[in-house]
Design a protein around this nucleic acid. Structure first.
Length: 735
DNA sequence: AAGCGAATACTTTTT
DNA sequence: GTATTCGCTT
């Protein structure tokens, strides 16, 4: 029997209370994962709730895996497949595979990611003959998503609309939903909504799942959105056997629909709830907690509380100002090298956190230069790489013949001579027959296309049909291997004699190894099981903390993790905090900073730069240091300032005025000294010009005459560009 | 139909 | 710096 002696009073109370609902406010580092795992163990050992009747929901697959491992280590004799632990999305997907037929779907449905959704929108916008720049796919998708998350249907949106634009938006939304069903596909939001329709319309299915999940635990409760709360309510609203853990100070997913009122609603839905607060922190030093609290306490809507710890004061928070992002990176690398040599630290002890993925580049460069091993989470994710998505699209099409998005992706990859015109004809046929594109290929013979195209089309159809017929009996990895052989993918990448293409092939090989691993671990799994697994996997899930390397990731990704030493970078206005529209946004940025700080056990470095390049080689912007820094008491800060000769002054930065004019704070007073001359005019060598994208530059050479002239311009940051006078839209500035 | 060069837009954060 | 799109050439 495991006992709870290693728990404090509140933790023990949270574990032992299993009769009435429990709402745990668990501050950062207060041992909530330990409470949740101990509670699961306790539920099983109390013999009231067998393992297979417990549902535990976490925020990431990684957290789920960790929890499973921990429970298993405490209950070695337990059958490991009996516990239901997973994210909302993966649990919903599992349910929907079984219940698809109730909902107008087939169990082989595909899960669409954001890119697939965007493509769907683009197709719709094109078909409706709307202006693609006005109806931006990304925007539309996020509008649709927030409507879905607020249970607003296309019809309701149309009724609410105040102008033609919004009406059109509702039309696109409606078509988008139709397409999802026609393609037998669900996006991430639909995955959460469909179980609610099932529970609402089929009471006997609801009853089944209520019996199935007799005790429910929810982690990171502050990040749940409305559909997720409804899901919990359906399952636990009746029996009231539920424990949720959350921390309002760590709510950082408001932009994704996370709804902090879910905490208030909890007490309404579960009126007898016990509220337990875990306020002792076991992770960080006193200084770290103080700095974290000094920022988050400025939030307006916040239940007042302060974590405390028995740990030492620890070292001061180091605050470093750098010239630019390269200097910042250099400082970080030198500190890690120093600490690695003298403090007996491993590389795995360090994490470098930033607000946006784009910031990783400069740091990576310096790490490569210093030959320090690092692993990066996020950014261009493995499963978002083109070559990976191409292979997966084939597999998705094999699993689900209605998936037109995947069809379009692979029908001419590798190129086999099926272009737009041919596919358009096929598409019209599919529309007439009310079939998917692949299904309509059955009628290739009667299409008005050239014989060569007919031949290729038939071959393609046979290829997919053939692999499909094997997909139920053979493991996914074999299907994948046959596919790659059939389409000669290896030759396609390796015959081009290009390093990039060879890299792509390496990635495909890594994908195959991944599929193989999955098949070994899940011998019963079919192709669609593998596909579901990949669709819901995040980059974080692939991150391996056993490897001894520095971790680079966004603050969002870092939630739930801990490291001895943490660098929080880019602490500048308009970066961290990022663009802020209202007080609510700023509150969330403060919580984000709080999350970043509380990842650290021993030491925090805060860094900011005077100048930062926003895009590739753009002129650097002048950056103000973050207001968060000013909220930290100076007595716990150890500030390393820039040497006086590196401080900004017009002497060191001849273009300072220009940069300031281009930065946010200086936007109001555009540079007055330069006279702007409209039109093409006469370009001369050494002429100073202004470009919309690259800013101010100097003309190096001119080829040709008039509007067709090719002009080579040197822009700030050693960027050379060859531009055509007619299109470049260059403005002449007096030199 | 496909491949190239050039211009454009884009970056929050993620299941 | 990357993804994407467009126009032009073959």
């Amino acid at each position: 029997m495991n006992n709870q002696n290693n728990l404090n009073k509140q933790q023990r109370e949270a574990v032992l209370e299993i009769e009435s609902p429990v709402l745990i406010f668990a501050g950062a580092g207060s041992g909530k994962t330990r409470v949740l795992t101990q509670k699961i163990v306790h539920l099983i050992e109390s013999n009231i709730y067998p393992a297979h009747k417990i549902l535990s929901v976490t925020f990431t697959n990684k957290a789920a895996t960790e929890m499973k491992t921990r429970v298993k280590s405490m209950l070695p004799e337990m059958n490991d497949s009996s516990l239901s632990i997973g994210t909302f999305h993966s649990i919903a997907a599992r349910i929907l595979r079984f219940e698809a037929q109730y909902l107008g779907y087939e169990r082989s449905f595909t899960i669409y990611d954001t890119e697939d959704g965007k493509k769907l929108i683009k197709d719709i916008v094109k078909e409706m003959d709307l202006n693609a720049s006005m109806y931006n796919a990304r925007n539309i998708l996020s509008i649709i998503s927030s409507n879905k998350n607020n249970f607003v249907s296309p019809d309701e949106l149309r009724e609410k609309s105040k102008n033609p634009y919004e009406t059109k938006m509702a039309d696109i939304y409606e078509k988008y939903q139709e397409r999802l069903i026609n393609n037998n596909a669900m996006d991430f939001d639909e995955l959460l909504l469909q179980p609610l329709y099932l529970f609402r319309d089929f009471p006997e299915r609801l009853e089944f799942y209520r019996q199935r999940y007799q005790y429910i635990l929810v982690d990171e409760y502050q990040d749940t959105n409305k559909p997720q709360f409804e899901f919990v309510k359906y399952l636990a609203g009746d029996h009231q056997r539920i424990t949720v853990v959350g921390d309002d100070d760590q709510s950082i997913y408001g932009w994704r629909g996370a709804d902090i009122t879910n905490i208030l609603e909890f007490e309404k839905t579960f009126p007898d709830a016990n509220i337990i607060k875990l306020e002792q922190n076991y992770r960080s030093t006193k200084h770290i907690l103080k700095a974290a609290h000094s920022v988050v306490k400025h939030n307006t809507k916040r239940s007042p509380k302060e974590l405390w710890t028995d740990n030492n004061d620890g070292s001061l928070i180091t605050l470093k100002q750098s010239e630019d992002e390269r200097g910042e990176a250099k400082f970080i690398v030198s500190r890690i090298q120093r600490s690695y040599k003298s403090d007996n630290k491993k590389f795995g002890d360090f994490a470098i956190l930033y607000r946006t993925n784009a910031q990783s580049r400069a740091i990576e460069e310096k790490l490569i230069h210093g030959t320090i091993p690092y692993s990066i989470v996020g950014g261009l994710k493995f499963f978002e790489r083109k070559e990976i998505k191409d292979v997966l699209a084939y597999l998705r099409l094999i699993a689900n013949v209605k998936d037109n998005i995947s069809f379009e992706r692979v029908v001419n990859f590798p190129t086999r001579g099926l272009g737009m015109t041919t596919i358009r004809k096929l598409s019209i046929r599919a529309g007439q027959l009310n079939q998917s594109l692949l299904e309509a290929m059955e009628t290739t013979e009667t299409l008005e296309i050239r014989p060569a195209q007919k031949e290729v089309m038939k071959k393609f159809k046979v290829l997919i049909d053939d692999l499909k017929s094997q997909s139920d009996s053979k493991p996914a990895v074999e299907i994948c291997r046959s596919l790659i052989k059939e389409i000669s993918l290896e030759a396609h990448y390796l015959n081009q004699n290009s390093e990039d293409e060879a890299d792509r092939w390496n990635n495909v090989e890594e994908l195959i190894r991944g599929i193989e691993l999955f098949c070994d671990e899940n011998p019963e799994a079919k192709l669609s099981d593998y596909l579901e697994n990949v669709s819901l996997q995040t980059d974080l899930d692939r991150w391996n903390d056993a490897k001894d390397s520095i971790t680079l990731m966004t603050v969002h990704s870092a939630k739930g993790l801990e490291f001895p030493v943490v660098f929080i970078t880019g602490l500048e206005e308009r970066l961290f905090p990022l663009r802020v529209n209202d007080e609510q946004d700023l509150d969330e940025e403060r919580r984000l900073f709080y999350v970043a700080m509380t990842r650290a056990k021993e030491k925090v470095y805060l860094t900011h730069a005077q100048f930062r390049r926003r895009y590739g080689g753009d002129a650097p912007s002048y950056m103000m240091r973050s207001e968060f820094i000013d909220h930290i008491p100076s007595e716990i800060l150890d500030e390393i300032k820039l040497p006086a000769n590196k401080k900004i002054s017009t002497g060191n930065y001849p273009d300072l005025e220009f940069w300031q004019a281009n930065s946010y704070r200086g936007q109001k007073n555009k540079l007055a000294g330069d006279k702007q001359i409209e039109g093409e005019g006469d370009f001369k060598v050494n002429q100073i010009v202004d470009h919309k994208m690259w800013g101010r530059g100097k003309v190096l050479s001119i080829e040709g005459m008039g509007e067709k002239a090719k002009i080579t311009v040197l822009f700030s940051g050693d960027i050379r560009k060859k531009l055509i006078a007619k299109y470049a839209g260059l403005k002449l500035l007096s030199s």
